[in-house]
Nucleic acid binder design. Structure first.
Lengths: 233, 233
DNA sequence: GGAGGGTATTATGCATACAAAATGTCTTAC
DNA sequence: GTAAGACATTTTGTATGCATAATACCCTCC
């Protein structure tokens, strides 16, 4: 309610009808963040009463949010026993990265056709920003930049359905990535890959870009799986 | 409540711990079917009171189901104005088929590696069943068989995450396909494509199968788009 | 006669109350 | 001492109530 005023200030920009925020939606986003950032760890039970107190709301929005996130796959419903944060297994991580690889490859191909020069320039800018973080050894900002690059790439594929699907899946694996501790060697290698990716995109070589992205994702998968305590080919 | 007894009868089959059906889940499935089969047409408003009467329940499960389906993308939430069945546009149909193409291509590649001979045999059986329906001009059973083949193919890729993603997207496009009226020529062509698909799968030629599936999906898209009253390349 | 505004009605959003299932605890019997 | 059962507590699932936003309707004014 207190934030209402500032919202209005932002609304008067150019949006004709300001969207009224739904409490359930806020709870969805807050819960999602808690889950993705691992504050609600995989496997933990979601106690409605506790969440209500934490989020300062009643059970109805919380329950609706849980149903929403269940559809998204971030939580699992146990009939008459509530819900838990979806556990992370090596198997599901592998599945997701395979899928993400295919999605990014598709996005890459589409981006080579549909991206505007301005969009590619934006990715290049993010890339150099990322290089800076890499040079300074700033891991967390590096990850943020990295994420933004991938999201921007998806975005400029010009396929909103693809983007939505990607985002949902990406949220899942980001949970796992919070555990991953990158070695310097792997980190350097990832940056090299990103350089090649940027080059292929700049030249709009769709097939090459697709292959690079698939391989890049595969390497990311290795890192995450090793962090999960299990490695395989 | 009256249905409770019959449910129990079914439970005693062989399942060790019969899962207690949740009312909200039943509503999800019932609503989803109504939407996919077009009984709740794209764009129509979901009136909670009406749905409650129709599904013989209170607003709570209905609202939770709507949130669930919103996450799935089948309904759109309009804050303070309820929800509508997500409208179908040529643009989103195109997006979804492009994505489905990539997913099926991936599934095809994986299936060529992971599918058991028994699974492929099952697909072959479904294929011949489909040929029979085609020969008799039975459109609706043909579609069912066709769906089963594609689902089975996805299934034997051995990637549950991929399967889930596919199912959700497939539900969306099936809404549109209910409008599509297949010409005999296109129908014949689709059957030919399926023959090639089966052959490639039998020979476990992943790359070939992937390409075939992509092209098959692209053709399906044409049919649906034309039925939507708009054609484009 | 049409447009604008104000009121009445309806529908949604959130909170809460009630019922049933699950869980935990304590007692008792062996 | 342990296991089984009954009871108490907690938690979930569903229904309902209340407040507010949106809609529809009607009346007035131009």
């Amino acid at each position: 309610m207190d934030q209402h005023t500032e919202n209005h200030a932002a609304d008067s920009d150019d949006a004709p009808a300001a969207e009224p925020r739904l409490l359930a939606e806020e709870v969805v986003e807050r819960l999602r963040d808690l889950i993705i950032q691992g504050e609600l760890a995989p496997g933990v039970k979601l106690n409605e009463r506790v969440l209500c107190e934490r989020l300062r709301t009643s059970r109805t929005p919380v329950r609706e949010a849980i149903k929403f996130l269940a559809s998204e796959g971030l939580v699992e419903l146990l009939p008459n026993r509530g819900a838990i944060v979806t556990p992370i297994t090596a198997a599901t991580v592998r599945e997701m990265f395979v899928l993400l690889g295919a999605l990014e490859a598709l996005a890459g191909e589409l981006a080579c056709v549909n991206a505007s020069d301005a969009e590619i320039a934006e990715i290049r800018a993010l890339h150099y920003q990322m290089l800076a973080h890499h040079a300074r050894g700033e891991l967390s900002p590096y990850f943020r930049c990295n994420q933004q690059i991938h999201l921007q790439l998806i975005e400029c594929a010009g396929n909103a359905t693809l983007a939505n699907t990607y985002r949902a899946l990406n949220g899942h694996v980001r949970r796992a990535r919070y555990m991953a501790n990158l070695s310097q060697e792997r980190w350097d290698h990832a940056v090299e890959e990103h350089q090649k990716i940027l080059d292929a995109l700049s030249r709009r070589e769709g097939a090459v870009l697709a292959a690079l992205l698939r391989s890049h994702l595969s390497n990311k998968m290795q890192v995450v799986l090793e962090a999960l305590g299990e490695q395989m080919a």
